[in-house]
């Protein structure tokens, strides 16, 4: 309904000392509130892109060049100090393995508090209130006893929800999720996917959903970008990706999908996905089989 504005627009190259051209002038654009699926095989540069957007590639000894236009400014041009105020507050990150992303030596509450205090100076009460609210919004028990737990006392699904809570604590306008479900079992995976859809809807948050799994992305995303060898080969609504893939690589990717997943169980699944995607309207059609009661509600 509303006119979609550009949230993120980037053009990046990145290298590692021992691996040049991991990203090769990769261009990508995202709109406010959009869920963009980024699909690529391992080694295609997915995680590099995630870190590069946060300008944290140097932690992995990487080097990045180009432009990252985010909410009207070029992040490549801002100081590290400013960048720090962007991270966590306007740009959230969710990592692949929830258990290693949580600090084993700290209580859950302490870690969430750290994330809160990175951007807000205020009373303990305010922090506590924000944290408990956020826990509720990711369907975790908003209890003090829960906050006193260590990561080793959580299930993987709970841990991933804590990570998501940390990432959305400050209601960022863009959440980057780097394979957030690959470490989870199928049921938890679908729960988390549902959570992302819900968060996007409720918080009007753009989500860059990085995955190697075309199928899981198909149900969630407004658009899908295919990443290969450091470049975006094509970027289109799922219907087009599945229905009329332009690039040879995409065609191979789609062809490699088990047919049953697309057609057999529910005859109109793919077609409904394909038919209802309209990026410009920022709406999402239903994908009944995988996330039955969630997706319809995303359609506003």
């Amino acid at each position: 309904m509303t006119r979609t504005t550009s949230l993120l627009s980037l053009c990046l190259s990145a290298d590692y000392p021992d691996r040049p051209n991991v990203l090769r002038t990769l261009a990508l654009e995202m709109y406010s509130g959009e869920i963009l699926g980024l699909i690529g095989q391992s080694g295609s540069g997915k995680s590099t892109l995630a870190l590069a957007i946060l300008r944290l590639l140097h932690l992995h000894k990487g080097n990045q060049r180009g432009e990252i236009w985010f909410q009207g400014r070029n992040l490549m041009g801002v100081s590290e100090r400013e960048m720090r105020s962007v991270r966590g507050r306007e740009l959230g990150l969710v990592l692949q393995s929830p258990l290693s992303a949580l600090n084993p030596a700290l209580r859950i509450g302490t870690q969430l508090e750290e994330a809160w205090r990175a951007h807000v100076k205020g009373s303990d009460d305010a922090a506590r209130k924000a944290i408990l609210e956020t826990l509720l919004s990711v369907s975790l028990p908003a209890e003090r006893s829960f906050l006193r737990r260590y990561s080793s006392q959580l299930s993987v699904g709970q841990a991933q929800r804590v990570i998501i809570a940390m990432a959305i604590l400050h209601r960022p306008s863009l959440l980057i999720a780097d394979e957030p479900t690959s470490a989870l079992d199928t049921i938890t995976q679908s729960e988390i996917l549902r959570l992302f859809a819900q968060l996007s809807r409720e918080l009007r948050m753009g989500i860059l959903y990085i995955s190697h799994d075309l199928l899981s992305v198909a149900a969630l995303c407004h658009r899908i970008a295919i990443l290969h060898a450091g470049q975006i080969l094509e970027c289109a609504p799922p219907a087009q990706i599945f229905g009329a893939p332009q690039h040879v690589y995409t065609q191979k990717l789609v062809a490699a999908l088990p047919r049953g997943a697309l057609l057999d169980s529910d005859g109109d699944k793919v077609s409904s996905v394909v038919a209802s995607h309209e990026v410009e309207e920022s709406v999402k059609p239903s994908v009944e089989s995988s996330i039955p009661d969630q997706i319809p509600s995303i359609v506003r």
């Binding site: 946060l54 932690l59 105020s85 990150l93 990592l95 290693s100 700290l106 750290e114 994330a115 940390m166």
Partner: peptide
């Protein structure tokens, strides 16, 4: 230094000093 939780903390906008004191040191205990 290369652990995920340090990366996660950085991604949350924590400063290097706080990451060292609050995330790294407790693990060195």
């Amino acid at each position: 230094r290369d652990s995920d939780f340090v990366l996660q903390a950085k991604a949350c906008g924590c400063s290097s000093r706080r990451v060292l004191l609050q995330q790294v040191l407790p693990n060195l205990r």
